[in-house]
Amino acid sequence: MKQTTLRRLISLGLLLALVILFTALSGSRFLNANNFIDIVRDASVTAIIGVGVTMAIITAGIDLSTGSIMAVVGMTMANIYAYTLWPIPCMILCGIIVGLGCGLINGYIIGKLHVPEFIGTLATMSIFRALTYMIAIRDANGVIQSQPMNISSYAVLGYAVGYFYFVVIAMIVFVVCGQIFLKYTRLGTEIYAVGANPKAATLSGIDVAKVKMIVYTIVGFCCSVGAVFTTARLQSATTAVGQDFEFNPIAAAVVGGVALSGGSGDVVGTLIGALFMVTLENGVRKLEMNTAYQYVIKGVIIILVVMFDAWYKGRMDRIAREKGAKEGVSA
């Protein structure tokens, strides 16, 4: 327990340090209630998708196709919106089904075809993006249009009740359910087992391929929910939805202490990581710095965190080994 608690404290410390830094640099422009509400709102989609990506990383995998799944889902709904009179819930349902399907495809490629996770999802990233273009809404001349989706019964999903945007409520639901799922269900435990020691998991009767397929399908589900809130907030769907997005949930998970070697981390950590990433973006904006610095800082932070984790893990393993050898069973 101590090791994971310490890692959680480090994530929180990073977040706090960032808040203090931006407060010191830009004062009340950064440090005010409205801005914090904005930050939480902006972090929500990353955190929702982060729930799924966290599970993928716990199985020692990765998903690089999340942004593209969002785009396909968004464009599916845009088509239904533009060409049918189906009710909004029905449209959303169709979007979610497509998202689940995309996730299942990833899961099949990884679980059954044994393609390494990062290669398989790198490929589906371009496949899903291409599919988005293929089903994009076009005008009479065949030029791709952005499809407005501003009917109030849909756009309301981008609004807030009091201080709480719907997306924030959804995010809370996802994080709580995700955490409970991982920690309190058999399947959750199996996800950790698959990531930490697939051989042992198999010996214990766990179907590794099945667990992976379920996990990537969950990622697809999270992406489709993310796409719903993103398009509702934009009140339109374009082919660019989720472009370069895949970076965010992975970065959030890494900062939040989900180890890429698999078997450890949790959804709450990813939430902290998502808040960290968005606070960074927000602060850079408030400082009126070139937004490009975000990319540099994000990349540097990921590498630093990963380096730290690698070093820290090596150290802890060594200590555990030495302790084990010295004290023996009687410890």
């Binding site: 990062f118 610095y293 990319y295 990921i302 590498i303 990963v306």
Partner: peptide
């Protein structure tokens, strides 16, 4: 040196290079 998977390091540095290009060209 750190035994970090290649895809992750290059995934992170891709963001760094993009940011640097944007900074240098002022987007």
């Amino acid at each position: 040196r750190f035994g970090v998977p290649a895809f992750l390091v290059t995934f992170a540095s891709q963001s760094i290079f993009q940011g640097l290009s944007m900074v240098v060209t002022n987007n």
